[in-house]
């Protein structure tokens, strides 16, 4: 089921929390929502899940508008809010039954769905305990289980892995990936590595605006117009090599890397590559080129560049 966010704006008082965000997510796609605190991630998710209407714009889930028929939209959405609110005094199994009933799961299927969710989310040993007695990680699993109990077409997860231990994080990521093959998944996170590992596509929001949209690789490339390579050249005088490298036509800047005395970081001019030239230079001068690796910018740096405005 396709989720299409069309130019939504949301204002709290005078502050614009979301300012004209538009994007589309297709079925079978996992989209990661990134952004610093207060960027508008949670607000956007609250609008998609019909918690509150946008001031302007519209969101369509499978072609149905959240403004005209929120009741129908809600049937297709599974939502895990950021704070993972739960009825603490209810036992896990009763709570899942309540959510299944209210989501309109057919009576004869409820039992089967609960058993499946308990198994998938690893809640077997905790199912009769009251939710308030569970650890944070288990509560997070209950939150995930309730979001998926009606087998929704669209899954909206606001920081799904917060509070989980590393093993659980890996499990939940695998689970999300599995679900994402058929369903539409939108998840938000602060952890960039997680988004990179689970998501097909990344959306970065900052101050209510969408500042980037693409796969992790395209984002990196976009942010990195200049080629940087790390080269290690042996059998030569350091200063000579340094100067020779700097004289190359395509090279803009050469950095000496102090900890590896034979290594240099070579930054090329925009839209140019110096790799061939470096190789030729070495053969001419009889130096031995032992390493030449492109330096990739980390997603963290891309994120910082895009979200730090001043």
């Amino acid at each position: 089921m396709e989720v299409s966010v069309e130019n939504i704006t949301k204002t709290y008082g005078f502050q614009k929390a979301v300012d004209g965000i538009s994007f589309k997510v297709k079925a079978g796609e996992i989209v990661g929502f990134l952004g610093p605190n207060g960027a508008g991630k949670t607000t956007t998710m609250k609008i998609i899940t019909c918690f509150m209407p946008p001031n302007e714009g519209d969101v369509k889930v499978g072609g149905i508008s959240v403004l005209s028929d929120p009741e129908e939209v809600k049937k297709h959405i599974g939502y895990l809010p950021e704070t993972n609110p739960l009825y603490k005094e209810m036992p896990v199994i009763d709570y899942l039954r309540f959510v299944a009933e209210i989501q309109g799961v057919q009576k004869e299927k409820i039992r089967e769905r609960i058993v499946e969710m308990i198994q998938v989310c690893g809640l077997k040993s905790e199912k009769y305990k009251k939710i308030g007695e569970l650890s944070k990680g288990y509560q997070q699993r209950v939150g995930l289980a309730q979001a998926m109990i009606h087998d929704p077409d669209v899954l909206i997860l606001d920081e799904p892995t917060s509070g989980l231990d590393p093993n659980q994080i890996v499990e939940i990521r695998e689970l999300i990936k599995k679900i994402g093959r058929e369903k539409t998944v939108i998840l938000s996170s602060h952890i960039l590595a997680e988004v990179e590992a689970t998501c097909d596509r990344i959306l970065i929001v900052n101050e209510g605006k969408l500042v980037a949209d693409g796969t992790a690789n395209t984002l990196r490339k976009q942010a990195q117009a200049k080629e940087i390579v790390k080269v290690t050249i042996e059998d030569g005088d350091r200063n000579q090599i340094f100067q020779a490298l700097q004289k190359l036509e395509t090279v803009e800047l050469v950095d000496l890397l102090p900890q590896y005395t034979q290594s240099y970081e070579v930054q090329s001019k925009p839209d140019a590559s110096s790799r061939r030239a470096i190789f030729k230079l070495c053969t001419e001068k009889g130096w031995t080129l032992t390493e030449m690796t492109p330096v990739e910018r980390k997603l963290e740096e891309v994120f910082r560049d895009l979200t730090i405005t001043n």
Partner: peptide, 14 residues
Amino acid sequence: KSGTLELLVTKPVS
């Protein structure tokens, strides 16, 4: 207070 209202109103109930 506990935030479960958000959970409840995002379920298909009016």
